[in-house]
Amino acid sequence: MLNGDEPITIQSISLTGGVMGSVDRIRCGDRSFILKGPPDTATAWGSLAATAQSIEREAELYRYLDQRGFGAPKVAPDCYWSVIDAAGGGTVALEDLGTPGDPAAVMAAGLDHAQALAAVRCLARLHAGSMRTGPGRLEVPYPWLYTAESPDLVAAVQLGLADLPGTLTRCWPGMDVRPDLYLDVAGLLRDSHRGSRLAALCHGDAWAANVIFQQHAEAPDGVTAHLIDWQYAMWGNPLSDVALLLWSSLDPWCRRAWQDELLRRYHSELVILTGLDYPLQACLDDLQRAQPAAALVALASVEAYVAGMGPAEHARFRPRMLDAIDCASAMTGRAAR
């Protein structure tokens, strides 16, 4: 893959310092690839990721995408090779599509209009490739996929919510809210998928730093999007990905102003690719079904979202925090502030 006289350099680009698994850019001259390894089991998050076989799941996901063939829409980096070892663990070597920029700045600013449109188009292409309807649609086609009821997925959300009070105190003193104490995490995750009109392979962690954007003159709005970091790939309501993207990665006023347009763009792309009889109202219903759980997952991911942010970026991100807290509080009838 890399062969030549140039020295090989290794640069860590993990957003979590390797806790959820090492992520390194391997470079030789003008050629490079991304190498992902197993999590750090010395931490609570790393231990959970190892127990849940996150790197093995991601390797299986890339193998699945590769099996779709050259005609399938591209939704992720190409996988050059992957290894799942018998003792547990694995390694994945991926095409280097670049990085989403400084994650702290990306999350603080939120997606712009063109990026948001590109992201929902990418999600529609992903979902269209595996869409199921009718009875049995929620039956999981591959054992390596999470479902909304997977114990490891529920445990990950609960662990993130347990971290929330400390993050609030550190980043936004006085914002003392603990929805983790009184929310039915398992029930909210389950209800976000049960009853959806469609089921499909979902990314499961669709937020701005997990999307690579590239300028492309021939793409609609001049931007393409590809998804990275598939540790939480799952089977269920595809609008759960759209809902999480809206709650995590758009300023509240943008989400409210653009939601109808973004949903229409997603719906149009999905129907064109699948030919499904799936009215726009049904798509909206599935989005609304997923929104409470999306707000919950966004709260559980705040520690990752704000990693590296300074005071000015905390202030920029604060309205999104309050919006998610308001949504979580509405589930319990408690005041958010």
Results as ranks from 00 to 15, higher is better:
P7F: 05
L145F: 07
G98T: 12
W144E: 01
R27Q: 13
C254S: 15
T16M: 10
D112G: 03
C28E: 02
G134V: 14
P143A: 04
T91N: 15
R190L: 06
L61G: 03
E313A: 09
L280Y: 14
E313R: 15
Q11P: 00
D5E: 00
A116K: 08
L164T: 02
A208D: 13
A304N: 15
L246Y: 13
P73Y: 04
K36A: 08
L245S: 07
W253N: 06
R31M: 04
L164D: 01
I8Q: 06
A304L: 15
S22Y: 09
P100N: 05
A219H: 08
A324W: 11
L287T: 00
A282V: 09
G136I: 07
T91Y: 15
M131A: 15
R125M: 07
R256W: 05
G21A: 11
D241H: 07
R178D: 15
T274I: 03
E139I: 14
Q215L: 10
T16S: 14
E261H: 09
Q215K: 13
A49I: 02
V83W: 13
W81V: 11
G136L: 02
M131G: 12
L188V: 06
V242M: 02
V302K: 07
H193I: 00
I8C: 05
A336G: 06
G174H: 01
L181C: 05
A72T: 02
S47V: 00
Q67M: 10
A148M: 07
W144N: 03
L322N: 02
L94R: 08
V223C: 12
